[in-house]
């Protein structure tokens, strides 16, 4: 009986492990289908410990030459700033000084906010950086969701655990919560206004023509 129970637990663990790989595959396939945009909003904890309302617009062109743009709407101090991430480069635009700083992706600090937001648009990359586990299913007003928890493989990511809700009917993340080692919420973000959009690389790379371009190596 005990052996049977052990086998059952092992088997259910195997099924769950299979499921998370399958969910990850479905999410990636869904997000890779066509360009899309979404608004990420919620609260984030700043380096000084205070908590602030945050709202970003995320635009992604999937494919071989993936391109993502994160535009800041809130907090007000960052409004107008944006980050463009391609395979090779990261562009940081700072509104206050009207500068674009271009760095090779391998050397750029994208995790300035404690977490690389574009990982949400690239689930494969997220699974490389975070060990994910299916924690269950639940129903929320948006519909039935998978509840996925994760722990970072790399301690420098700025959080100790994460929880993502993935919509079952249209496999994509709809919320993410990050916690630190003391189980305090570092970021609590919703993934709203998701829509397929006709995005072009030119539109994602758009910047003020008179911005000072600084290339860093």
């Amino acid at each position: 009986m005990k052996r049977l129970l052990t086998l059952a637990i092992l088997f259910s663990g195997f099924v769950l492990a299979q499921s998370i790989a399958e969910i990850t595959r479905q999410v990636q396939a869904n997000l890779d289908r066509s360009p899309w945009e979404a608004t990420i909003s919620g609260r984030i904890q700043l380096p000084d410990g205070s908590s602030q309302e945050a709202e970003f617009r995320l635009q992604v062109i999937p494919g071989r030459e993936q391109l993502a743009r994160v535009e800041f709407n809130k907090p007000a101090a960052l409004e107008g700033n944006f980050v463009v991430i391609s395979d090779k480069e990261v562009w940081n635009y700072l509104f206050l000084t009207n500068q674009v700083i271009i760095q090779p992706r391998s050397r750029a600090r994208v995790e300035g906010l404690g977490f690389n937001l574009t990982d949400l648009g690239d689930f494969n990359q997220l699974t490389e950086r975070v060990t994910l586990r299916l924690a269950g299913e639940q129903n929320i007003p948006a519909g039935a969701v998978w509840r996925i928890t994760g722990t970072p493989r790399d301690a420098s990511l700025g959080f100790a655990s994460m929880e993502i809700l993935v919509l079952k009917s249209d496999p994509r993340p709809i919320s993410i919560t990050l916690r630190d080692g003391a189980n305090r919420v570092v970021a609590d973000l919703d993934f709203g206004n998701f829509r397929r959009a006709n995005l072009t690389p030119q539109a994602l790379r758009k910047r003020p023509a008179d911005a000072e371009v600084l290339r860093r190596n």
Binding site: F82, R109, L113
Partner: peptide, 10 residues
Amino acid sequence: SAVEFSALGR
């Protein structure tokens, strides 16, 4: 030289 903080500043 410069120290970069992504969208937060530099």
